[in-house]
Design a protein around this nucleic acid. Sequence first.
DNA 1: TCTGGGGTCCTAGGACCC
DNA 2: TCTGGGGTCCTAGGACCC
Length: 420
Amino acid sequence: MKPTFALVDCNNFYASCERLFRPDLTDTPIVVLSNNDGCIIARSQEVKDLGVKMGSPLFKVKGEIKRHVILVFSSNYTLYGDISSRVMQTLEQFSPYVEVYSIDEAFLDLSGIGALEEYGQKIRSTVIRHVGVPVCVGIGPTKTLAKLANYAAKKFKGTRGVVDLTDAQRQMKLMKITPVGEVWGVGRKLTQKLESQGITTAFKLAKMNPHQVRQSYSVVLERTVCELNGESCLELDEVGSKRQQIVCSRSFGEKLTCYSDLKEVVCEFGARAAAKLRGEEQLARMVTVFIRTSPFDKSGPNYANAATGSLVQPSSDTRQILELAVRMFDSIWCEGYRYAKAGIMLGEFCSPYDVQLDLFADQTDSQRNDSLMTAVDALNCKGQGKVWFGGQRPKKDWYIRQANVSPAYTTRWSCLPVVK
DNA sequence: TCTGGGGTCCTAGGACCC
DNA sequence: TCTGGGGTCCTAGGACCC
């Protein structure tokens, strides 16, 4: 049986989340900012129509914000995460196979289902009724075509938010009017290169010879070409597939210059990363620490460095990870810079069930360590910062700017909206 | 004054081996 | 005069995604 994929994507997701408990903002233009209130990472439709670009640094668009009376929100990931899981839960009733692709979109396997457009409309109306977030649905024989269908569903109002692209004629019709840069997997660099070769639309890309594409570009683009022609190369990746890397990093609200400050921040990130790792039920072998000044900071010299180390035994024990992280940090720390960002990466994962045990280690010790970590996680499960390790600095006095953050409406009792 | 964070995959080139 | 060839593994960096 030929596969059928749907891509369900929330419209202006973060902005829609902010509106969910503020019905008074239905027609107000709003933007949501990145961590530290740095860049614009989400815009409501009105703001998109005004031409405010995604990713613009806030200070560069201050004028437009003021002129058009755009309401500004700091990001509230607690809220977005909770709304996201409600959307995903709702989607599960429409397909036995759901791949949560990002916080605001999911692929569904709709193979064998008829009357697809109607089905798509049913998905839309159900999500808006159950969660209150508007979504668009794109349907196609490959993931890339489902993505393309979703693009059309968002762009053309006449589609009422659902496009079924299983028909080859419709595929061609749409691809002829779609700029090549809108194709999933074609980014800025590739767009430039393709356009310089005269490949300006999705249709022209689809008509290229896959073998030549592989030679002049890459196997990735070759796959894209095949997918545009209805040949499914990318499978549905179901929930449960493990991550290969965990990163925890932040820019600081204020530059840090002192060794102990930065070390505490690195430990804080390390502890958070280790907790995430335990949540995944994995062990890590590799730990990388990086620190850097701001590339935009012209007031002094720039410095960026990273160091990677390996644990003797794969572990998810915060203490072992922090011990190595501090060693890595010490090896790259340099006095005299104004640091803007730091982070930690964990990698080379393995399952706790197939670790090679240390011949000389006392196994009762490792069991006790596991219990300790489980206890710490349980104590910290409702938000961070109840229990922490020496070296961490959980009080956040390295300060992240968050001037306009909305309440945690759905995850904190004290923030529950009240109906009068 | 002020420029996000977290992922994946592929490739080229060097080291090393026989 | 004349200096192999082929394979694997690892890493850094680039491109992409949201």
